[in-house]
Design a protein around this nucleic acid. Structure first.
Length: 205
DNA sequence: TGCGCCCCTAGAGCGTGCTA
DNA sequence: TAGCACGCTCTAGGGGCGCA
């Protein structure tokens, strides 16, 4: 599966103008535009006009579903098949039991990795690194409201569509590994049609 | 080494919309 | 409605790279 820096940028930053892409990649506007148009022709990127006041409307480039498919969705089909088999043969309760066990396992693993970090920002940074390693293309930012943990990609999207327990479980894990003095809410959700999953993290004290 | 392809740059021109 | 600002488009040409 091959992706390049243009697709990677659109994946992580969402819709961008050719000028923005050029600035991010350190090339000229025209160089970026020509490359983006090539991706448009290939169906990996779509372009839309957006009027923002004086001047010609901006042309916003963003990934198409075909472009998104260039990013890994590991063993999606097999995973969905296994989930459905488990549900059909063992029942919903058994599936939930497995999901719960997975949540505990995941939480323990994250806890162990984040053990060296004491303050919240270090733990969020550590969590971001773990999630990126797992294919979520995660990043975090800090602002006046607290922290924003962003996952630009969902490598288990197909499985999550089949079983919402994955998403619920992940949110629970985040709450547990970041501590009781933290409030976390999901503000963007890929399964709801958003470009990314994003979590607002705020200290409650 | 020559050739072709790809990627990129630079510059000029064009299209769109705001403002006086 | 003309002038202006902003951003897109077109075209020519250069550099890097792979291949025969």
């Amino acid at each position: 599966m091959k992706t390049n820096r243009f697709l990677m940028l659109l994946k992580t930053r969402g819709g961008l103008t050719a000028a923005s892409v050029a600035q991010e990649l350190g090339i000229t506007n025209e160089g970026a535009r020509l490359q983006l148009l090539k991706f448009v022709e290939e169906g990996l990127v779509s372009a839309s006009n957006e009027s923002t006041g004086v001047g010609r409307p901006k042309q916003i480039f963003s990934l198409t579903p075909q472009g998104n498919s260039k990013f890994p969705d590991t063993h999606a089909e097999l995973t969905v098949k296994l989930i459905n088999l488990m549900r059909d043969t063992l029942g919903e309760d058994a599936l939930k039991a497995v999901m719960d066990a997975g949540e505990v396992f995941g939480k323990d693993r994250y806890m162990k990795e984040l053990e060296p970090f004491s303050n919240l920002e270090e733990r969020i940074a550590g969590l971001t690194e773990i999630r990126t390693r797992e294919g979520y293309m995660a990043e975090y930012t800090k602002d006046e409201a607290g922290y924003l943990l962003i996952e630009n990609h969902c490598p288990i999207c197909a499985a999550a569509k089949s079983c919402q327990g994955f998403c619920t479980g992940e949110l629970n894990i985040f709450k547990q590994v970041l501590g009781s003095k933290v409030e976390i809410s999901r503000i963007d959700h890929i399964l709801s049609g958003d470009r990314r999953c994003a979590y607002r993290i705020a200290e409650t004290q």
